[in-house]
Simulated scan of single mutants.
Amino acid sequence: MKSMKKYILLGILSLIIVGGGIGYYMFNKKVPTLENTTSDYVIGANDLFNEFENNESEALKKYENKIIEVTGKVISVKNNDNDSNIILEADMAMAGGVNCSFKYKQDEEITKGSIVTIKGQCQGFLMDVVLNNSQLIK
């Protein structure tokens, strides 16, 4: 009976160690860049925002977790120490339109009012359409 408890404890300890290793790996796993990926959709910022504004559930089915290449007018640029955020204008939006988050600080000078093309992964719609893991195309 004593040796059976020892094996059960050893089994539980092994599961904890394996689970901890998997958790550590998943936590530290890097997100791949979109640099060499093809876009699922190429669309303007106004059109993308309007699709979400008019029918959010259908737009989510179509765009969520897809790679989207969007072109629009920059209305906001925020550079932090390690990342950047660019918001593209949409005419129907009360404020904002398409929110593009970058994993790194933008080296290129992007000014308010310029027209840019950005590729990112669509995460859904809050007040803006949200694109994460973005890459500046031009």
Rank of each mutant, 00 (worst) to 15 (best):
K2W: 14
M4K: 15
M4F: 15
G11A: 09
I12S: 09
I12F: 12
S14Y: 08
G20V: 10
G21A: 09
G23F: 03
G23N: 03
M26W: 09
F27E: 08
V31E: 12
P32Y: 10
T33C: 10
N36L: 14
D40E: 11
I43K: 11
I43M: 09
I43H: 06
G44M: 07
N46P: 02
L48F: 03
L48G: 04
F49M: 05
E53S: 10
E53G: 00
E53C: 00
N55G: 13
N55R: 12
E56P: 00
S57L: 13
A59D: 05
L60Q: 04
K62Y: 00
E64T: 12
K66H: 09
I67T: 13
I68C: 06
E69H: 10
T71H: 06
V74E: 04
I75N: 10
S76R: 15
V77F: 04
K78Y: 05
D81M: 10
S84L: 01
N85V: 12
I86K: 02
I86N: 01
I86E: 03
L88E: 02
A90K: 06
A90I: 01
D91P: 05
M92T: 15
M92Q: 15
A93P: 11
M94P: 07
A95E: 14
G96T: 07
G96F: 03
G96K: 08
V98E: 00
N99M: 05
F102G: 00
K103D: 11
Y104A: 06
Y104L: 04
K105I: 04
K105R: 15
Q106C: 09
D107N: 15
E108C: 04
E108F: 08
E108D: 13
E109P: 10
G113S: 08
S114C: 04
I115T: 11
I115N: 07
V116D: 06
T117R: 09
K119C: 07
G120S: 12
C122K: 12
Q123N: 05
F125G: 06
F125A: 06
L126N: 11
D128Q: 06
V129Q: 08
V129A: 01
N132Q: 13
S134C: 15
S134M: 06
L136S: 03
